[in-house]
Design a protein around this nucleic acid. Sequence first.
RNA 1: GCCCCCAUCGUCUAGCGGACUAGGACACCGCCCUUUCACGGCGGCGGCAGGGGUUCAAAUCCCCUUGGGGGUGCCA
Length: 483
Amino acid sequence: MSVRVRFAPSPTGEIHIGNIRTAIFNWLFARSQQGTFILRIEDTDRERSTEEFREIIFRELDWLGLDVDEGIGSGGSQGPYQQMERLEIYREYARILEEKGKAYPCFCSPKELEAEKDKARQEGRDSVYSGKCRDLSGEKRARAREQKTPEALRLMNDERGDVVFSDIIRGEISFGGSTLDDFVLMKSDGSPTYNFACAIDDYTMEISHVIRGEDHISNTPKQLLIYMALGWEPPEFAHLPLILDKERKRMKKRSHSSEVYISGYRHQGYLPEAMLNYLALLGWSDREGEEILSREELISGFSLDRIKHSGAIFDREKLDWMNGVYIRNLPLSELRSRALPFLQQEQVNVKGSALDYLLLALQEKVSTFKEMAEMASSYAGPLQYEDQEKARQVFGQEQVDQVFKYLQEQLGGLEEITPEEAGKVLKETGKNLGVKGRLVFPTVRWALTGKGSGPDLNHIIAFMGTEECVRRLEKALEWREGE
RNA sequence: GCCCCCAUCGUCUAGCGGACUAGGACACCGCCCUUUCACGGCGGCGGCAGGGGUUCAAAUCCCCUUGGGGGUGCCA
């Protein structure tokens, strides 16, 4: 049987880390099995679903390079791939179930149901529906309909034994029959409930493996009951461990505002390949123990049986490290094109070889492009001593004026300079003047950048250009005098 | 309350009865490299939640306790 998996988000908010990790695992599984990756939009929550959020789903999948085989805009023969366009399908199966006596209309009001639940809870029982509408006479039903009482459809659940299934990741999981009630299939507004739509869709779309978050474990028996009622063979299930926040709570919308949404990471200049790599390692690990894995390596190494059972805390620091690794591995041309949008955002207008020298200098130092752009902006902007006291002290050392003047002479005669040449000049300065490196490198850095530490000085000089370097050295000397 | 899942360094993880004195990565701390910071290299710190079993042998299997998480909706 061919592998068909789906990612089924609801367009009710920005897509968050936990969601996208589920998408990644589905996608990796599909790609590793020559299977089909399907995108289904679960928009039956009419209150909260929006077009905008739907677009965001496409955008984020695209950003991460999770290409969809079937779905809106991707074609496929099992559509439509948006639940609100499948209403007729759900209604048809609802009708079939009702005809078979496996479902029945319920006229209970929300108030009634709540009272029932409270009572059950107080008595320490499972809060299950009493089934009071099960055996309404045809007469009573007719009367309720006449009065336009809102009408939902419930499953006639006659299963009394345990509902058991074998989870690919966790093994056998069973639920006591008494904890499952006659849950709602069709809401009174005519749309299906999550569990109903999910079961119908997974079956009709011929999904072979349902790979989703652990939070769905308790939905599984309900869906199995639906499969049973319809006489269908259920798919395989694999429940993924959850991604937790620092408080060990499930990462969910609004919990840590900017930290949870995938878009936040995109905006801060994390690379999609780093994000994919890092997220894949949350709950799964490579057989070889490798951590930096390309898209292809992730696919070829992926398998469901290497997925952990326990939740994983999202560790921003490790992500930063990994993103830094990816940035450092970028060839110059890539570095340039990836950094560009962030540089523009920080209004860094450096161009040509100067830009290249600057990027090369910064490449070794940053973990995100946002950070890179901010640093670039500070180096490209006007000179500012971060610590005036310290600067004065540095420039005030003996022989510093000789060093600066010598350098001005050396650089002044040149149009342009490469990092290599700059390095040579710097070295010769100390040698020819007979002064220690400590009097050259740190002092020049202070004069040129106004800071005590930073990226490779040779690249800074090349980036800044000889003219500007001479000017800044001059400024340092003046500044030193003009107390 | 009830149902379900889970449990190895601070964090991500390897481990699927003997090769474990428990391995790797991030973070942290030293040292080296170096003009600074970083990068890189070397080293260090640090963990099998507790208690019972099973077994010649348990991080690995079973049970209990504890702890954490998820669910408990006419949300998905």
